[in-house]
């Protein structure tokens, strides 16, 4: 049975609707409808996301129990090594604490935060996003930074609706953030996401004395993002001694899939 003329017409009509949605969306004509959809879905999303997070918590606990015994054995072995490394880590911790205190405290006091609940997340494995329940009506604008209560940046607001916003997480492949490394050279670069797997920093000059464990923070070069928001620590450095530039992977301090409450910095 071939495709009937009626079906062909319907398909053309559907594609025409797709084109109209494209045009009207970018003209902003559909904005009221989009906001209405967000308003209708938001309460349900909020509830379901909370429940699913609780279920995940139970599952994680159960899984933790299974892994606990293995971890104990591994930890015993590690303990000996750790004693040797302990002194090094203590010094490093002191340095991190000190640097954190230095992170533009004056600026911190001038931040205005908008607390938001995470009500959903992008499901596509290409895009790492979360949906928050605050939007333009709560003074949220595009490109504002989203942080946790510890001052760790998790991403930037990318799309704003009246009562909701979509945040592109740092580990999204299209996420780019001006960053600086807390080393002597104050290496500046761009922290870029890698398909949800992590964050990397590229084009680091070879002579800038990069070391693993060093703190990476926002550089403050972006208009709406203050300096000093913690991104993570340098985990691995790639590139041979002969390379002019090196690449570093950044270990993120938190698991983005477990976010439930975040804050948006609405003014600096």
């Amino acid at each position: 049975m071939a495709v009937t003329p009626r079906k062909a017409k319907l398909s053309i009509a559907a594609l025409l609707i797709v084109v109209l949605v494209f045009v009207f969306h970018y003209l902003g004509v559909l904005r009221p409808v989009e906001n209405l959809v967000m308003v209708v879905v938001r309460p349900f999303q909020s509830g379901v996301y909370g429940v699913s997070q609780s279920i995940r918590g139970v599952y994680d606990n159960w899984q933790s129990g299974q892994e606990l015994q293995t971890q104990i054995d591994e930890l015993r072995e590690q303990h000996l090594n750790d004693l040797v490394e302990q002194n090094k880590f203590r010094l490093l911790k002191e340095e991190v604490d000190y640097l954190r205190q230095q992170l533009d405290l004056v600026e911190n006091n001038e931040w205005q935060l908008q607390v938001a609940h995470v009500i959903g997340a992008g499901q596509d494995d290409n895009a790492q996003t979360i949906i928050i329940d605050r939007g333009a009506k709560h003074n949220i604008e595009k490109d504002m930074p989203v942080i946790t209560n510890d001052g760790i940046i998790v991403g930037k607001v990318t799309e704003v609706y009246d009562y909701a916003a979509i945040v592109r997480l740092l580990n999204d492949h299209n996420s780019q953030l001006a960053a600086t490394v807390y080393n002597e050279a104050g290496t500046v670069g761009v922290a870029q996401g890698e398909f949800g797997l992590g964050v990397k920093m590229e084009l680091i000059p070879e002579n800038e004395g990069l070391a693993t464990g060093v703190l990476v923070v926002t550089s403050g070069l972006e208009e709406k993002i203050p300096r000093g928001l913690v991104i993570g620590n340098v985990e691995k450095i790639f590139g041979s001694d002969e390379d002019i530039f090196k690449t570093a992977t950044i270990k993120l301090p938190i698991d983005f899939t477990k976010l439930s409450i975040v804050s948006v910095i609405t003014s600096r």
Partner: peptide, 9 residues
């Protein structure tokens, strides 16, 4: 809800 609030978890 399944797509945006449950599966991502």
């Amino acid at each position: 809800l399944i797509e945006l609030s449950i599966l991502p978890q």
